[in-house]
Amino acid sequence: MLIQGFGRGLAMLAMALVVMMTVVDVAEARRAGGGFGSRGTRTFSTPSTTRTAPTGAQPIDRTMTRQQPAQPSAGRNATATNPRPGLFGGLGGSLLGGLMLGGLVGMLLGHGLGGGIGFLGLILQVLLIAGVFLFLRRMFAQRGAPAYAGGADARSQYRDGGSDFEIPRIGGGRQAAPQAKPGDEIGIGQADLDRFETMLKELQAAYAAEDFRTLRQITTPEAMSYLAEEIGDNATQGLRNEVRDIHLVQGDVAEAWREGTDDYATVAMRYESIDVMRDRSTGRVVSGDPDNLTEAVEIWTFVRRNGGEWKVSAIQGVEAA
């Protein structure tokens, strides 16, 4: 009876360990976030670098867009085009099935790992197998992570004069926009650039005021859902994000393209603002500087459907220099 009770305790411990490992995986994924929303068919590719953002954008890790599987090349061997069996379907499945079957048989016969304590031996085997499985799953996940287009190659090809389509600085006067640079397939004009600058201020102000009505008007439903989620998370923690005194310092178009009746424009923007986090009940500053401007660089993607109004469809941070 004592051995059986100890075995049940180990089984519960094994289940708890698996749950804890799963929670850690989710938490790590959230902390590693770099962007949200959709850039259409270019969601999983890295925007071109610009003078405003020479280090490139972080990948979008929160999106409802499904990544299209890579098409196999015609010259590959037929066996190489077949999908690789999953961990349970290949070696891992055979190993796990064999060990589990051996443990069950050993338990029924009164042998197996642990000799006379067959059930305890089975539990120990399950713990060992679970540990090996989690290790292999993480290893294969890292190897199978999608390679984002652009990245280091795009940064190595960046040249100081690679982007001439710059959003004029605030207070610096308006100049005639030059011809669209390579990568601008739809011809973004000065009126579009002015609108992007205005939307930067509108979205930041609406986000700080938790004005969901305005956010819905200037964002896509998907982008709105992620912004609302962030506001909700802040509220749950008793916090409120205050953003004010927004000034665009510099910006330029990374790329613009058309997909059917939809126009997309990805723009790098460097702006200054007062950005602090306050306690919702007391107004006490939890983080940030309420007296001095701080600078941020972000990559924003705008979409215009069927010739309508521009809406924010994605926001990405930039990689560290």
Rank of each mutant, 00 (worst) to 15 (best):
V23C: 09
S45T: 13
L95G: 04
L96W: 10
E242V: 12
E319F: 14
Q142G: 12
L203R: 13
G260L: 06
Q316M: 06
V249D: 10
P72H: 04
G9F: 14
F133I: 10
A141Q: 10
V318W: 05
R30E: 11
A27T: 08
V285Y: 03
R143P: 02
G106C: 00
R216T: 04
S38L: 04
L248G: 09
G35N: 02
T65Y: 05
Y148M: 12
L239Q: 14
D263G: 01
R8M: 13
F88T: 11
G131C: 04
V132E: 03
R278I: 11
R51V: 08
R216N: 11
H247P: 03
A176Q: 12
L227W: 10
F302E: 05
G162T: 05
R284N: 12
F119M: 14
M199N: 07
V19N: 01
V312N: 09
W300Q: 05
F119T: 04
G103W: 01
R169P: 07
G106I: 01
I186C: 08
G172H: 10
A265L: 01
G98A: 09
P85E: 03
V243G: 01
G183W: 02
E222C: 08
F36I: 00
P178K: 02
A320E: 09
F119L: 15
R76Q: 15
L104S: 06
T50F: 06
I3G: 13
L203S: 14
A130E: 12
L96D: 08
L227G: 02
V267P: 07
G121H: 00
R84C: 06
T43H: 04
D61L: 03
Q179N: 11
G56P: 08
G97C: 05
A27L: 15
A14H: 05
L87W: 11
A320L: 09
Q58P: 00
R138V: 05
D275H: 13
V303Q: 06
M12R: 10
R76A: 12
P290Y: 08
T220D: 01
D275F: 09
I231D: 09
D263M: 00
G90Y: 06
G92K: 02
M277L: 14
D184C: 03
A32S: 14
L127M: 15
N234M: 06
R244I: 02
L136Q: 10
V303F: 00
A314Q: 03
P54K: 08
T52M: 03
